[in-house]
Write a protein that binds this DNA or RNA. Structure first.
Lengths: 301, 301
DNA sequence: GCCAGTCATAGCATTTCCTGATGAGTCTCT
DNA sequence: AGAGACTCATCAGGAAATGCTATGACTGGC
């Protein structure tokens, strides 16, 4: 026979109640079952834990000492298990999340607020990064969950579309094109354009869409930060081709936004995770909240 | 399913070896058995501990965290159990022993030396006390084992004769009675006698023995300490009637010892313990050494 | 001396656990 | 590309453990 938790629990309870019968009742066991547990424990330890008499049991000195140690260990164990269960119940835990800045500034705060309401003890460590960095962080294990885009299927990552982001034309106040409801790459190609810098996913998207229309994208201005691009447009220096989800756009009341109804002007914002790696319950909870949140995002047009 | 140590051990080993198969081998289990243990553990916790693939398993983040806690707890448990087993094997432990001073000064050191040789880690806390105190200490739980005498059977104590102590006549150098091989109460009654103080077990024994012979014991001197009594005898002030086991006698080369061959001049030195209370393994070891040691004690006469 | 209370024992049923065989998926080497 | 090695999952049957009910043995109090 080897040691078992049953034995330890039986022993601890017997010590606590001072009686085999009462201990058995408290553990929802029959008294003989408990007696056997104690006896086998004594046998495995080679030590008498209780002195029995017809009037009851009395703990041995060794029994008293051991009971203390065992009780402490059981308590620690129970605490660890309780902690694990709490994590499993999504009531706690920490998620490392890598997000595109545009999403971090718009959809994410709403989702985090909801998550907090549902699972207050879940911590989310948000790391904003461009699409490529999001993928890298996931693969490197620096993030458990990611929100970004992918150039194509990635064998290491799972992807699931959260929502679609579209590039929209951003017009300065009073611009001539403002009378149109929609704009096309062909129309835009004639204007001085404000875009993000080469290499950014938004820029790549725009270039591909123009190429499909047989056009070459030749921006007048290139900005690294969205706020810069918006400022350039507002100053009337050109027409912006920028993602609709960017917070800076939605906060700029004087600018006119016009959709560019070309499929390739849309990009899929993906919920990313490592393939072959299960999500922690906390991450699972976050993912669920994200899925439920994005459908509520405002439309642009 | 409830938590079991098997599961924890399986989990800890799987985490340590990084493989279910290797963990199973190390635990002398089949791989399926280990797989099941891990799975049921995951079910009871509600938590995925490993991500499986056909290439092997990789611990989850939660798994890594939990493994640390569990490993620590298992180690503590093993340590406690090892300590208990060591006690059971009599390799360690502490015995509280109450002893008559005469025994403490003579037989006991020999026994303790032997015990140390056999079980170096057993500690013996020696408390010397007169016969009545020895009994009291046992009953009060202040001592686990006692060496003393009893006026009669005691319902609370078990007694076992270790050896018999006899009162001997102690003659100063050149005393007239020294030519006799043996002495009797009748002869001694005519001498000025040196005894221990009234109430001591030695004194009571002597009084009873004299009474049986129809004599009244009327000592010339009464000493509390054996060393005093011996000094009085050596100074020629009288004939001592003292226990043969007293170390002071055996260390006093000039004194002549003569047996008093009367049965009632003997007292049983008893090994005492609480009835209804089992001895700790360490105490058991001490008891055995005591039994084996006393038969070797020197004879007087 | 009987009754109440406590633990131990025995026989039987149930649950748990393990093993051995087998299957499925992946990687490596040829 | 295919064979072989490796890993984990699943399944079926049997062994071990655990538990329960019934009963016994012993003690202390009324």
């Amino acid at each position: 026979m080897s040691l078992s938790l049953r034995q330890l629990r039986a022993f601890a309870m017997a010590m606590e109640t001072g009686s085999f019968g009462r201990a058995a009742a408290r553990l929802h066991l029959s008294q003989p079952a408990l007696t056997v547990q104690i006896r086998t424990l004594e046998e495995t330890l080679g030590l008498t834990l209780f002195d029995r008499s017809a009037r009851g049991v009395r703990p041995t000195e060794a029994g008293r000492t051991l009971a203390q140690s065992f009780a402490r260990i059981l308590e620690e164990l129970d605490q660890v298990v309780a902690g694990a269960r709490e994590q499993a119940a999504r009531r706690s835990g920490t998620v490392h999340l890598a997000v595109l800045p545009s999403v971090a500034a718009t959809v994410l705060p709403v989702a985090l607020a909801r998550l907090r309401q549902a699972h207050p003890a879940i911590r989310v460590l948000v790391r904003d990064a461009v699409a490529r960095r999001v993928s890298e962080m996931l693969k490197a294990g620096e993030a458990e969950l990611g929100i970004g885009t992918l150039p194509g299927p990635d064998p290491e990552l799972t992807a699931e579309t959260l929502f679609e982001d579209e590039l929209v034309a951003v017009l300065p106040p009073g611009h001539a094109l403002a009378r149109r409801k929609k704009l096309t790459p062909a129309i835009l190609a004639a204007e001085p354009l404000v875009l993000t810098e080469p290499g950014s996913s938004v820029r790549q998207l725009a270039e591909r869409a123009f190429a499909e229309a047989g056009l070459v994208l030749r921006p007048a201005y290139e900005a690294t930060y969205m706020s810069t691009a918006v400022a350039l447009v507002r100053a009337g220096l050109g027409v912006g081709v920028l993602p609709a989800t960017a917070l800076d756009l939605q906060l700029a009341p004087l600018l006119e936004l016009r959709p560019i109804p070309v499929p390739s002007m849309r990009r899929h914002i993906l919920l990313l995770a490592r393939r072959n790696s299960s999500l922690s319950p906390a991450a699972e909870a976050l993912a669920e909240v994200l899925r439920a949140t994005v459908v509520v995002m405002p439309k642009v047009g």
